[in-house]
Design a protein around this nucleic acid. Sequence first.
DNA 1: CTACATATGTAGCCGTGTTACCTATGTCGC
DNA 2: GCGACATAGGTAACACGGCTACATATGTAG
Lengths: 112, 112
Amino acid sequence: MRAEALKGHLDALLLAALEGGPRHGYAVIESLRERSAGRLDLPTGTIYPALRRLEQRGLIAGEWSVVGGRQRREYRLTAAGVRALEGKRADWLEFTAVISTALGGEPWPARA
Amino acid sequence: MRAEALKGHLDALLLAALEGGPRHGYAVIESLRERSAGRLDLPTGTIYPALRRLEQRGLIAGEWSVVGGRQRREYRLTAAGVRALEGKRADWLEFTAVISTALGGEPWPARA
DNA sequence: CTACATATGTAGCCGTGTTACCTATGTCGC
DNA sequence: GCGACATAGGTAACACGGCTACATATGTAG
């Protein structure tokens, strides 16, 4: 998968990964890899700065903990993050609908 | 629509816009605007450089003409461009499938 | 004691879309 | 005639954000 295609959609992915409960960065990477059958294998240099951006924007909240002698930063969705995720899911649907239509040549399931 | 989300998909859009026959840049913009019910209104500063990139890569071929006293650069798909469009459509389907799955929470219509 | 998985992070690069300009011609309204 | 606008093409500088490469540290397996 072209990696640069992710641009603008990573935040939604990260928020979605935290939807099922708090996770630390490393676990987010694994979670996305599993959910996508290995096709989304994002490097730490992508994930960690992105999580910090989300935290600064107040969409997630991070907290340090120590598990098995290792430092972890666990992130959880804030109320604003939940709302943001909702909006981003709607954006994603609109985005795919618009591009799929413009791309043509492929049947697009009937839209509401 | 968040404009930056386009990143990585613009080429496919442009190739698709030329699929129905040769067009010049300005017409491509209008074509995309119409096909998307006004939601894709791309500035010339996005389209013209992108068309030149595609031409340099040999996916489209441009030719000057004069219509109504105005200079036009008509672009048409090359054989390589047709193949590239095919590949990009497949990429798009895979991309949306992967992201939609990872994003969860939204049903993804059954694919062929 | 080496290697690897786990875990977090930063600096700098690069692609690419945007913003803000510029040029030129034809047409319509005044 | 002249201004405004649609048509038509273009460039330079910027900004955003994901990637590459690197640095650090601990636990576990060989």
